[in-house]
Simulated scan of single mutants.
Amino acid sequence: MITLRVNGETHTVDVDPSTTLLYVLRNDLGLRGPRFGCGLGQCGTCTVLMDGRAIRSCMRPVSRATGEITTLEGLSATGELDPVQQAWIDEQVPQCGYCQNGQILTAKALLDRNPTPSDEEIRQGMNGALCRCMTYYRIQSAVRRASEAMADRTNGADGVGGEVGR
């Protein structure tokens, strides 16, 4: 038996300890955010956050999955979209959508580490989250937009007494 903390809830699963975290999240917990892409940890579609760090769940044995795990579903667990998710919608990033789990969670980890990245830091931070539709410019714009939205939230610019005329 393995106990995991996923999206704020504790789960106990009866699986072989060498089973990948990806398979446990999808098959045992029914989460559809992380996806199988390459199976080698190179494309990023299986990305989850573990204690805030982006990791590839297709390569991580469930026995080594410690701390708080956050999937795409966990970003909006309260019913409100995370600024990164909202920026993805506003910038119309997805085309086929297959990579979006990895893109969004990689961006979330980047912005949590560096709330105001430069364009170069965005490109470096998103390196390894592949998009076969080549929407990299829209991804970069969405990361920038999310960064600004997070700064506005921190500074109280929520439309009520915050900045006017942006």
Rank of each mutant, 00 (worst) to 15 (best):
D16E: 14
D16K: 08
S18Q: 15
S18V: 15
T19S: 09
T19Y: 07
T19F: 03
L21F: 01
L22H: 10
Y23W: 15
L25R: 00
R26F: 11
N27E: 14
N27D: 15
D28A: 13
R32L: 15
G33Y: 05
P34S: 07
P34I: 03
R35F: 01
G37K: 03
G37F: 00
G39C: 12
G41E: 11
G41Q: 07
Q42C: 13
Q42S: 13
C43H: 05
T45A: 14
C46G: 02
D51M: 09
G52Y: 04
R53T: 15
A54Y: 03
I55T: 05
I55H: 02
S57G: 11
M59N: 00
R60L: 15
P61N: 05
V62F: 01
S63I: 13
I69P: 02
T70S: 13
E73W: 06
G74D: 06
L75I: 08
S76W: 06
A77Q: 08
E80A: 15
Q85I: 01
A87L: 02
A87C: 07
D90Q: 07
D90K: 08
Q92M: 14
P94A: 07
G97T: 06
C99T: 05
N101V: 10
Q103C: 10
L105H: 09
L105S: 06
L105D: 05
A109L: 12
L110E: 02
D112I: 11
D112V: 04
N114Q: 13
P115G: 06
T116D: 03
P117H: 09
S118A: 12
E120F: 01
I122Y: 06
I122A: 01
R123L: 07
Q124P: 00
M126S: 03
N127Y: 12
N127A: 14
A129F: 08
A129H: 04
L130W: 00
L130D: 04
R132A: 02
Y137A: 14
Y137H: 15
R138D: 02
Q140T: 15
S141C: 11
S141Y: 01
